[in-house]
Amino acid sequence: MTLLLDFEKPVGDLRARLETVERDYATDPTDELGRLRADLTLDLANRTRAIYQSLTPWQTVQVARHPLRPQTLDYAIGMCTEFVEFHGDRAFGDDRAIVGGPARINGRAVVLVGQQRGRETRERLDRNFGSPHPEGYRKAHRLFQMAAKFGLPVVTMMDTPGASPGLGDEERGQGWALAANLAALATLPVPIVCVVIGEGNSGGALAIGVGDRFLMLEHAIFSVASPEAAASIVWKDAKHAPHAADALKLTAPDLLRLHLIDRIVPEPVGGAHGDPSGTITSLRAVLDEELARLAAMPVAELVASRYAKYRRIGSWFEQGGAPS
């Protein structure tokens, strides 16, 4: 665990001390060292819990972006007994920022689609840091249609700073690709469960994030724009990103309170990056439960209630209370 976030420093120091004491205890198992070891272990757990129970929104953004946090392919490998990655949009190319294909979770065949940011510098470049091009969204679209054709439920995983904003993306119709996915998902005649596993920003996240159930990992974020982008719009300065993170209500607890998401998937104490396999296990159990429940619904009812669910989201008042 070499990558410590600023606010994790006290925990990091404590952990380093504990490791020293454990080494000493191994060679010299005195009662005193044993007691110290027990105290430090308890202290570490309490401090970690305390920090992670009261993360500020901006700290949550850092956790959501943590390079050691599990990504879509980690879940695909860790929670699926089978996964075949399909490539390409059949029109232009294969975008590596979106991965997907048929998979099996707890015996159930599904189509899994998610954004992949990459870890090493080269992989991150190769995957455009998880910012998909139009061909990525069109690959996702193709996979959604395939799911509908075979009656397979869809599981999507959002983890993106946003859709790629380059000239080539504009030439290939980024906006058109995103819109086509929103439309396709709105009426796709199979169950859809969406999960924000890291950072879910703007239309680039939403274009694989419309479904019957919308979940967030505990320390993921979901936002109309990245805090930096929102800050440059509202403050005219991206440096105000921490203020934007506060104001945007982008954390899972805030969004659940506002009835904008359906469920929070708890992360192990210390965040997903501290215990990837624990996180993967936790999400697998939740997905299994959600998919089982949706599988019991008739398709027409499923699609109608999906429409009603999105139709309800809004906030306004009627001046004068006149009937409309």
Partner: peptide, 26 residues
């Protein structure tokens, strides 16, 4: 574009409007 001050409420209007387009298409 989307109105930042309404956050995810604004973002989800994109999905809501697209669903309504689909209803007309249906």
């Amino acid at each position: 574009g989307a109105r930042q001050q309404e956050g995810v409420v604004a973002l989800v209007q994109m999905a809501k409007a697209a669903a309504a387009v689909q209803a007309l298409a249906g």
